[in-house]
Design a protein around this nucleic acid. Structure first.
Lengths: 133, 133
DNA sequence: TATTATACTATTAAATTAGTAGGAATTGCA
DNA sequence: TGCAATTCCTACTAATTTAATAGTATAATA
């Protein structure tokens, strides 16, 4: 029941960019050094954030990354889903999850409730909430 | 961010016992068959529930398991923690987790809030809530 | 054109998960 | 008394996932 490094690092990166960029491009290396995360591994995580359209990038010398929007326009749940995959605590609740016994499964509603509690929380916070806390 | 089979099966077992035992001992084999779970694997999970003091057992022929208390006296969070280990979504929040940077880590409070939401939910439900839903 | 970046893809070591396997101890019943 | 059914206990293992590492191609700037 742990969030993987993908989700954790992704959020850390977004917070780092929100706090340190000031509109400038920041290199991956700078972020990795500052946050003490493996350079090459972070590259893959940033790639996911990039594919999700959350970043603007500049290649080449003096290049790097910056946020594509204002911090208050990022919902933390979205950042996590883009990197962790869906956040549902059990497979039955997945879109593709075929829970055959759903009807007479007494645990199903409990798990659904847990899922709701998680989604509700992560979707109630924006990046801005985090950096101003 | 998934609950493992340990926690899921454990809860399934407890619900099964609550619904099918009526004060009688039920064999592991019956539960495993009814819930379509591997006999031998379930054995290990029931052992954890047993060690936590949640079950009464009868060995030998005609033996089996039954709940040690009434369904309303089991908090679902406790059942999950006994089998899954602690439910905190990241290691920083663990008892032993030494989060050195906690003070100036902007994500820490967010994760703590997620943990709170999860614990609050799982500790608000008893076994009785599940079987009567 | 050398340097400093991102972009992309493949490989791998370690850990975890989900189960298998086998046998010892205990009890009820014929 | 002995057999069958059951819990109890420990060791092993296959598959999957996680967290990286590695290498190369592409791009931009001074």
């Amino acid at each position: 029941m742990k969030v993987s490094t993908k989700g954790r690092y992704a959020l850390t990166v977004m917070v780092d960019l929100a706090m340190n960029s000031n509109g400038n491009f920041i290199s991956l290396k700078d972020i990795a050094t500052r946050q003490e995360i493996s350079n090459k591994y972070l590259e893959q995580i940033i790639a996911m954030l990039n594919k999700a359209g959350y970043l603007e990038t500049a290649r080449g010398n003096m290049g790097g990354y910056r946020l594509a929007r204002k911090p208050e326009e990022y919902i933390v749940g979205d950042i996590l889903r883009a990197t962790e995959g869906d956040l549902t605590p059990i497979y039955c609740l997945t879109e593709n999850g075929e829970c055959v016994k759903k009807e007479n499964c007494k645990t199903h509603d409990f798990w659904k409730g847990l899922d709701d509690a998680i989604e509700k929380y992560v979707d109630s916070k924006t990046l801005k909430d985090l950096i101003s806390e």
